[in-house]
Write a protein that binds this DNA or RNA. Structure first.
Lengths: 245, 245
DNA sequence: TTAAAACGTCTATTGATATAGACAACCATA
DNA sequence: TATGGTTGTCTATATCAATAGACGTTTTAA
């Protein structure tokens, strides 16, 4: 297996954090799958060209994240967590898309508000600026593990009561069905990435420096009329998107 | 610890870097569009609850990235840069996709090698492990600004000489055409995000902590036979992906 | 039972971060 | 031209990050 090369020193980011990132990446690449353990601290120190204490700081951070668990006398064990695959297609649905990869899917309604459409929301929903929309703040979990934090807007007139319907069914699909929209399609998805904000870090139980995959999505009914615009922030280390054409 | 901290302190990441990230985000959110300038250093120091020198370190980093430019006596000006939109469709092509958003598109061949297909490459290209493939390491630029760093594999028998063809035409599409494949389609794209490796940081002229959008893509010919598997790493702050269904 | 291997803890030293204060240099404008 | 606002530079101090070395504790296997 290709050895990890020496870290290049980056100003402003502590060495132990850089090394933690490298080890986290190596783990997710399956570099240590054979043993299920991280190499010994002394070996890692040699590989990265740093002091053993620095490696220990890195491993402590990873242990804090729940990625590894150090056992005195044995070594540092990897606590593997799978990356959920999230297919993005014309029929993209969060619950159904992830459903077969986790035992328990939940969608929690954190907040609901009726407000006036801003420029961006109006554009995506095909409304005029200032027209009433309903905004839902939701948190989606797979097996009690937070996966994404979404902000969604809906035309207020057509989907009055969608907050209550979402809270009951814990899914957009069910909420739409409840309100007389049995089917809908994904029209557009824009994907970017960014660092997590403090609020998203808290909701998604992320650690400092965590990355988000951000999907701006627009769903329409079968006539092509926009029914939902949403900005979903996914914990990047827990998901991957798949686009099949 | 005297004074309220508006910035949440993250261990292992220097304060000036956290503040640089916050300012960068505020700029890209258009928070300072009215003036085209960042607020004065003293004001930022108060806002973030840190010393002015710390703010100066943050602004120096942003200046290094080319995001702002400080002018003595006047203030710190924002040098806006657009995010390139990269559509992912069945007909995804890098040069054509970005082409209308930049004046000059370039594709540089960094390295070329003939090797045996590993497990992942073999699976994607529909080959047996160990069958010969050609690997190209490429760097794509828009207006001299590095946009993505890609590693691509091609079946060696069918596409012998693709390295030379790529170097000449600076595009995969042209290289394929040169080798008798006038058209191809994007079959699958997987999108993830991660921190940049040291090598990618260098190639893409990124600064520490930078984020990559990673697209694993498979292209087929019109008969559905895989012709290319690639892992492209995009500088996340320079692009967004659009998936139209 | 013993020894090697591995993680855990402690002390000490050096360089990078962050704060604090003061003042110089420069720009726009009244 | 004078003034207020802004960035640029300097000195000083305290805290954090990283290295270095030594030794303790636990597990595994000989």
């Amino acid at each position: 297996m290709a050895g990890l090369k020496q870290v290049q020193r980056q100003t402003g980011v502590a060495l132990w954090r850089q090394i933690a990132d490298r080890i986290r990446e190596a783990i997710s690449n399956g570099a240590y799958d054979e043993t299920g353990m991280v190499p010994p601290e002394t070996m890692l120190a040699v590989q990265f060209g740093v002091n053993r204490h620095t490696v220990r700081s890195a491993l402590a951070a990873l242990a804090q994240e729940g990625i590894v668990r150090a056992v005195q006398g044995r070594g540092t064990l990897i606590e593997r967590k799978e990356r959920l695959n999230f297919p993005i297609t014309r029929r993209t649905r969060f619950t159904a898309g992830i459903g077969d990869q986790a035992r328990e899917m939940r969608g929690l309604l954190l907040d609901e508000a009726k407000e006036e459409a801003g420029a961006e929301v109006a554009r995506w929903l095909g409304l005029k600026q200032g027209e009433p929309v309903i905004r839902l703040e939701t948190l989606r979990q797979a097996d009690k593990r937070p996966v994404s934090r979404a902000t969604s807007w809906f035309p207020a007139e057509r989907f009055a009561g969608i907050g209550e319907a979402y809270r009951a069914g814990e899914s957009i699909t069910k909420a739409f069905a409840e309100l007389g929209l049995p089917d809908y399609v994904r029209a557009t998805t824009e994907v970017t990435a960014a660092h997590a904000s403090a609020a998203d870090m808290a909701d998604l139980e992320l650690t400092p420096g965590a990355i988000l995959l951000i999907a701006k999505a627009m769903n329409t009914d079968l006539d092509g009329v926009p029914v939902q615009y949403s900005i979903s922030r996914f914990a990047a280390d827990r998901v991957q998107f798949t686009i099949e054409n």
